[in-house]
């Protein structure tokens, strides 16, 4: 599937964007030219050689704060997605096979989680477990997990009732074999799409939570936190929110692009789509792509 995603232009673009964001998350804190927490007397300065993106209302270097904040922001959203993945997919798969009681219970639980209001619940739980980014994101991950539950359950159901699964059972396959050999391949694209979407959602959530003062505490920088404080000084620096907003948007956009690309190339139609594109492109141009990814 990876190769097929790379055969699409949008797939390559998405991966490019996400690799860039990932590098920011890893290297960002080391690249920061100034201490992101050190204030100075030059407040609300414009862009200069010393401060590429100017300074904020306390005179802190904006570019350093963006770079330093990238790790928390990215890790937070990845945590949301991974928690949701684990909490959602496993019961989603099992709900098809573990019998009626488990199926009924897990379905009702998923419905309940969907019904809980996101931010209110996050506020309540961080009050209980302590106000940290990890706790906050854990809660959000659990709340998003019904998406994964539903997606993986639907994909599993479709495969579980297929004749080729019955054919495998007639040959003596166990449920574990069926899940590994037949179900997993079909469920994976659906999960990948949900995962990419969730990372996008997680980003906005990290931002909106720090906007509310939950999770990451000021003065520690996050992209969402920067955006929030910039909005207070629009009057002096109307251009300031552009940089953090652009980074958030780019990440969400990259995730959505990747999700679209995965959806496009999975399943029968997807394969046909890529094959026609391959046929149209000339072989010389295509070979490097194949060898690079394969």
């Amino acid at each position: 599937m990876t190769r097929r995603v790379f055969a699409l232009g949008t797939g390559r673009l998405a991966v490019g964007i996400l690799v860039f964001i990932g590098l920011l998350a890893v290297l960002g804190p080391y690249l920061a030219p100034h201490d992101p927490l050190a204030s100075s007397t030059t407040t609300l300065a414009g862009s200069s050689w010393k401060h590429w993106l100017g300074t904020d209302y306390l005179g802190r270097d904006v570019s350093s704060r963006l770079l330093a904040g990238s790790r928390t922001s990215v890790l937070g959203s990845v945590e949301v997605a991974l928690v949701a993945l684990v909490v959602g997919v496993v019961p989603g798969l099992l709900s098809v096979y573990l019998g009626r009681v488990f199926e009924w219970t897990s379905l009702r639980l998923a419905d309940t989680l969907i019904a809980l209001p996101f931010l209110v619940f996050a506020v309540a739980v961080t009050a209980l477990l302590g106000n940290g980014i990890t706790q906050a994101m854990l809660v959000v991950g659990v709340l998003v997990s019904p998406l994964f539950f539903r997606v993986s359950r639907a994909a599993t159901l479709a495969v579980a009732r297929s004749q080729y699964v019955e054919a495998a059972l007639i040959s003596g396959a166990s449920i574990g074999w069926v899940v590994r050999r037949h179900v997993w391949v079909k469920v994976l694209p659906a999960i990948a799409v949900a995962l990419a979407q969730t990372i996008g959602v997680g980003f906005i959530v990290v931002s909106s939570l720090s906007f509310l003062g939950i999770g990451v505490q000021p003065p520690a920088p996050t992209w969402g936190g920067l955006l929030a404080s910039d909005l207070n000084y629009l009057h002096f620096q109307p251009y300031a929110p552009i940089a953090p907003a652009a980074l958030i948007m780019a990440t969400v956009w990259g995730c959505n692009l990747l999700a679209d690309a995965i959806r496009d190339v999975s399943g029968e139609n997807g394969r046909a789509l890529v094959n026609t594109r391959k046929a149209r492109a000339n072989g010389a141009r295509l070979l490097p792509v194949e060898s690079r990814t394969g």
């Binding site: 297929s162 004749q163 080729y164 019955e166 054919a167 059972l169 007639i170 040959s171 003596g172 166990s174 050999r181 037949h182 391949v185 079909k186 029968e268």
Partner: peptide, 25 residues
């Protein structure tokens, strides 16, 4: 049943092979 089937004593052919063969295998 699973043990019996694994020995492969009895096999089954479906009407429509497009549905009885995994499209991704």
């Amino acid at each position: 049943w699973r043990e019996l089937r694994r020995r492969g004593v009895i096999q089954y052919v479906f009407q429509d092979p497009l549905r009885s063969l995994d499209p991704d295998a």
